[in-house]
């Protein structure tokens, strides 16, 4: 289980390098130059649009079960603010709809 293949290692190192570059640039660069209003607005939209862009095809591929799972995840998260409960409920709903559908 200790094995590691080259492509996987390179992908992990690439992710780590990109992430460190972003972290360091905030400390070294962003304190000196003020990002303009457009860039600030762009960055403020990025977390939400990333999650949506990721979730949309995943949910669409899973059809009705995906939709049910996504809605329950959102509703439980909004009411409890607990990631644990929202994940459990979302996966449960996904599982339930899928077993009913087949």
């Amino acid at each position: 289980m200790i094995g590691a293949d080259l492509a996987t290692l390179l992908a992990i190192l690439g992710m780590a390098a990109a992430t460190f570059a972003v972290r360091a640039s905030g400390y070294l660069v962003l304190r000196r130059i003020q990002p303009g209003p457009f860039l600030r607005a762009f960055l403020s939209h990025l977390p939400g649009t990333l999650f949506v862009a990721f979730a949309a095809p995943a949910v669409a591929k899973a059809g009705l079960a995906g939709l049910g799972g996504a809605v329950v995840t959102l509703v439980v998260m909004a009411t409890t603010r607990s990631t644990t409960w929202s994940l459990l409920a979302g996966v449960g709903a996904f599982w339930a709809v899928r077993s009913l559908a087949f």
């Binding site: 939400g48 999650f51 995943a58 929202s86 994940l87 979302g90 996966v91 996904f94």
Partner: peptide
């Protein structure tokens, strides 16, 4: 489904 659900849950905050 827990993996996409993680990021779906993060939409709320």
């Amino acid at each position: 489904f827990a993996a996409p659900a993680c990021l779906i849950a993060l939409l709320v905050p």
